[in-house]
Design a protein around this nucleic acid. Structure first.
Length: 964
RNA sequence: GCGCGAUUAGCUCAGCGGUAGAGCACUUGCUUCACACGCAAGGGGUCGCUGGUUCAAACCCAGCAUCGCGCACCA
């Protein structure tokens, strides 16, 4: 097939024309080859015969196969594209909105404030689907809030993304044969800044392309002078309060970027390795060996003890004795510690206090020496012995195992699977490492827990509150210093004359506090001081984002913010920390609602990632489906919280919906003026039904918004517009739009269309802002922007009597049912396409005026030449009929007709009715059901029983007549 | 190991006590004067398994299975 497509492409004309295959049956199908927008791009073009092989494609061959190729199709050639082409429309409105500063938030406005701060996107990456989903949701919320009359601030910005940005620039330097060390700190930072200037804005421009209604005049950046002052100020304040301290602790060390990381920046990954069993000789009991299991033989040079459980009978007697560490050879003690699990391995643990968290703690408990055998870059140092000095830790593992084997000390090794911490950014295994770092004891922990537990801040979906509570209960101090150059440099200076002392980590916390200078500005005598080399963790600036981005009046008005939209993977990184920062520094919660989006996965359920190459190019998607199409498609699959399987078909659905809307409006425009002055327009029952449905849809949408159920909102809009308004209502009024129709009916139809379109555009706008704005203008619904239009207060049928509405709806639905059944009957006789049939409607209400009005509707929609109402019609043998809510419909057929299909259909229906009847009857025959079920349920079942029985009788009668 | 979530049509998912739904895919028909990115008519499901509660269970409860995600110092 793809070969055929290739060939088709060769025939593709330049610019805008299209190919069609026309089959001998005069069926017209679009060809897949042309990307001009007029034709389908479905992967399987229908009706291309398998015989159509590459090489046999020329026109002649197609002719012989009964196919003709025409280009361009004469029907389509002279009309402009009937598919909505989003590109120009989206550009146009983006520009107009921006020119009009329509997104600007006014702190002086008397309206109720509504605010969101954008989660700063990572400027080192390109726009990915996660951003698109996330920001679409924010934009939907912001636009809806505007239309509900709020003064909206959606504040955009970016952060400096410390590690990520530094990595990118270092890689760039590497390609140039340079390094940051060669450049020096100042020049390097300047270089990063210029990279940022060039690339930092790209992703925000891409968000504009998506239609995001951010107040771009307030774009913020974590390196803005005011923001920097806020970050450093917070550091100083927390330091003075004693929440920040410096000390030697076990940290997560990334040997690649050579910096400490917080626990959140470490991801656990299942790793396949080996469990090595080795033996150490007991010095005090020569000839006796202790067998030890380890996954990391390369650290044995750092072992300073061997530990067993104190109650372990196998080894209890050895506690206090010494064993021989094979290399560098040294005696190390056997100690007893409760931490040891006697069940694991051999029940003996080698203790390496310098390179393992648990071992470090054991070491602390037993006063063991710390032997650090690793360099910061993950290679081994002198302490590991001459054989190992300079080797990478991975190589050292193999070598250590080999050496043990050579010494006869390696018992065996078996394949082993365990969880190893990896650096989230650099992707290499983390090294637990003892180092001198800055830490934060989190402030306002209890208040932050309570804010969420009490519902003051609401998480959606709610289940994240539990995760949050769990994390808050087990919260650990935060390592906030990073050994990087790009970021906010720690505002601490050390006295030059005591610098060595201080850096050795030997000073007590007290002594340190009295020696250092901590302040927003450098000390007055800088020559006597040395500033700390480290910068702060990027998240130490991000956690201030909701308020540090706002100046006085803005904060006064728009803080606390209303909603935060983010992915659950940064609940701890960001959300929890913002809550603590907000409570600590503003005395208020930073936001009232947090909506967690799902994580987008590919169709196989894998995370989208650059390395897997399964991440689609979003800009291309925006080009192909339009921003509105992408927004709508993504929102439809954005469930309330769980993961999202991405499927491009959904975007296609969004694009198709845009085209559907476009064409529905085109249809309206073709009908001309609505004669608004027409005194007494006649509203058809279908018009009333449609406005009632519109009303229901609007209410359901409002509820779905209140519950942040975005997929439901999109579904409601789609269902109403496509399945009801287009498929039913527009079809039902086509009779009224004929030139010969009564003017009052025509006016009623046109006015109803306008009323529904107007209200529908208002509802749809937050999701598909561009096309709705364009159509609002084309339809001339209002002078200003649709985006600034308030949602209407009442319903579309407020001026109608409720009893009339209810009655009309029942009638309209009955007509719909009759149409469906009549079409069905035609199809059953293979007459689906024929318009040359007659129907006879036998109904008790045949004399009613309203029914007379509906006869033409029935005729048009069922596709009949004639429909006649006849209450006294007697069904002749062999004439098929069907039971509808309007009455029975018969289809007298001329000549011989195969009735077997219809008989089969009726039999199938009878089987279903019998099954249903059985269920209902057994229910009603059950005394405890009749006793205990609510009366309305019992009534409902009784009604159903009599309906079913009647239906059954009539079907049997029809079957009888058919069998003639 | 603990916690959370998922399991419904071929696929992606909605429904969360009272007659199993949507979109896509599939079948059939359609040059119907808004739309083939369309219209119409169809086919397709013991709602993961086993128990329990209930007049009534896809839905509530318990257990199990499978998958996914968090958290956790088992070397």
């Amino acid at each position: 097939m793809s070969d055929n497509l290739g060939l088709l492409n060769d025939f593709r004309p330049g610019g805008g024309a299209s190919f069609f295959f026309a089959s001998p049956t005069r069926s017209r199908r679009p060809c897949v080859a042309c990307q001009c927008g007029l034709v389908s791009d479905r992967p399987d073009p229908p009706r291309i015969p398998p015989a159509l092989r590459p090489g046999s494609f020329p026109f002649a061959n197609i002719q012989t196969l009964g196919y003709v190729l025409r280009s361009p199709d004469p029907l389509m050639a002279d009309t402009p594209s009937k598919a909505y082409a989003p590109a120009d429309v989206e550009n146009k409105w983006r520009r107009r909105w921006l020119d009009a500063q329509a997104f600007r938030a006014d702190p002086a406005s008397p309206r109720e404030p509504y605010s969101i701060v954008i989660p700063p996107p990572n400027v080192t990456g390109v726009l990915h689907l996660g951003h698109v989903l996330n920001n679409t949701i924010q934009d939907v919320l912001a636009r809806r809030a505007r239309m509900r009359g709020s003064e909206v601030l959606w504040l955009p910005g970016t952060d400096h993304a410390g590690i990520a940005t530094q990595n990118v620039v270092e890689r760039e330097l590497d390609r140039e044969g340079l390094s940051r060390q060669a450049l020096g700190r100042e020049a390097f930072v300047r270089r990063v800044e210029s990279w940022r200037e060039k690339h930092g804005g790209i992703i925000l421009e891409q968000l504009q392309r998506l239609g995001c209604s951010c107040d771009w005049s307030r774009e913020r950046y974590t390196q803005d002078p005011a923001y920097v002052a806020a970050v450093l100020g917070v550091f100083v304040e927390l330091y003075r309060q004693g929440h920040i301290y410096r000390g030697v602790r076990m940290v997560n060390w990334c040997p690649k970027t050579q910096t400490a990381l917080s626990d959140e920046e470490v991801v656990m990954e299942t790793t396949h390795g080996f469990l090595y069993y080795m033996r150490y000789e007991v010095i005090d009991s020569p000839g006796r060996f202790l067998e030890i299991a380890t996954t990391r033989p390369e650290t044995l040079m750092g072992d300073t003890a061997v530990a067993v459980h104190p109650a372990d009978a196998r080894y209890r007697d050895l506690i206090g004795m010494y064993v021989r560490r094979p290399f560098p050879e040294a005696p190390i003690p056997v100690i007893g510690d409760e931490h040891i699990d006697p069940e694991f391995g051999t029940g003996v643990l080698k203790v390496t206090p310098a390179h393992d968290r648990a071992d470090f703690e054991i070491g602390q408990r037993h006063g063991l020496p710390i032997r650090d055998i690793l360099n910061p870059d993950g290679t081994l140092n002198d302490l590991a012995g001459p054989d190992f000095t300079g080797l990478d830790r991975a190589e050292a593992r193999e070598k250590a195992a080999g050496k043990l084997e050579a010494m006869g000390l390696l018992v065996r090794r078996e394949p082993y699977e365990n969880e190893v911490g990896y650096s989230e950014r650099a992707g290499v295994p983390i090294e637990p490492r003892l180092s001198l770092q800055w830490f934060l004891r989190y402030p306002s922990v209890d208040a932050a827990s309570n804010a969420v537990a009490s519902g003051q801040i609401r998480f959606r979906p709610d289940r994240w509150t539990k995760s949050y509570a769990h994390w808050m209960e087990n919260i650990q101090d935060w390592c906030i210093s990073r050994q990087l150059w790009w970021g906010h440099r720690i505002p601490v200076w050390y006295p030059r004359d005591r610098f060595q002392d201080i850096q050795s980590g030997a000073l007590s916390e007290e002594a340190l506090r009295s020696a250092v200078y901590v302040g927003l500005t450098p000390p007055p005598d800088p020559e006597n001081w040395i500033q700390d080399d480290d910068v702060l963790d990027t998240w130490f600036s991000s956690w201030l984002w909701p308020f540090a981005t706002m100046d006085g009046p803005t904060r006064e008005r728009f803080y606390p913010t209303t909603d935060l939209v983010t992915a659950p993977d940064i609940l701890f990184f960001w959300v929890a920390r913002m809550i603590m920062a907000g409570l600590t520094f503003t005395g208020q919660i930073p936001f009232r609602n947090v909506f967690f989006t799902g994580l987008i996965r590919d169709s196989k359920g894998r995370k989208l990632s650059k390395s897997l190459g399964n991440s689609p190019d979003c800009l291309e998607l925006l080009d192909r489906y339009g921003a509105d199409g992408v927004r709508f498609g993504l929102l439809r699959i954005a469930p309330t919280g769980s993961d999202i399987r991405y499927d491009e078909d959904r975007l296609r659905e969004g694009r198709n919906f845009a085209t559907k809307l476009w064409n529905a409006v085109r249809f309206r425009l073709l009908q001309g003026d609505a004669s608004p002055g027409f005194s007494r327009p006649h509203l058809s029952i279908h018009a009333i039904e449609s406005m009632a449905r519109l009303n229901e849809m609007e209410q359901a949408v409002a509820q779905a918004f209140a519950g942040y159920r975005f997929n439901e909102i999109a579904g409601l809009l789609y269902e109403f517009f496509w399945s009801h308004y287009c498929d039913w209502f527009l079809e039902s009024i086509k009779e009224d739009l004929q030139p010969a129709a009564e003017p009052a009916r025509r006016a009623g139809a046109l006015q109803t269309m306008d009323r529904i379109l107007l209200r529908f555009l208002l509802q749809l706008h937050p999701i598909m802002p561009h096309i709705t704005e364009e159509l609002w203008e084309i339809l001339d619904f209002g002078g200003g922007f649709l985006m600034q239009e308030p949602l209407p207060a009442g319903s579309a049928l407020d001026d109608l009597d409720p009893a009339t509405v209810a009655e009309s709806r029942l009638r309209s639905q009955a007509v719909q049912d009759a149409v469906r059944k009549a079409r069905n009957m035609k199809a059953a006789y293979g007459l689906g396409a024929s318009r040359n049939v007659s129907f006879i409607l036998r109904t008790a209400v045949s004399s009613a005026n309203w029914l007379q009005d509906e006869i033409p509707v029935l005729r048009l929609l069922a596709g009949a030449a004639r429909v006649e109402a006849d209450a006294s019609y007697r069904q002749p043998r062999g004439v098929p009929g069907t039971l509808t809510e309007l009455g029975e419909i018969f289809m007298p057929l001329e000549g011989l007709v195969d009735t077997s299909a219809e008989k089969a259909r009726i039999s199938r229906e009878l089987v279903q009715i019998d099954q249903e009847l059985n269920r209902v009857e057994s229910r009603l025959g059950n005394p405890s059901f009749v006793d205990r079920a609510p009366s309305e349920v019992i009534e409902e079942n009784r009604r159903r029983r009599s309906d079913l029985m009647q239906k059954r009788r009539q079907l049997l009668e029809m079957l009888d007549i058919l069998e003639g």
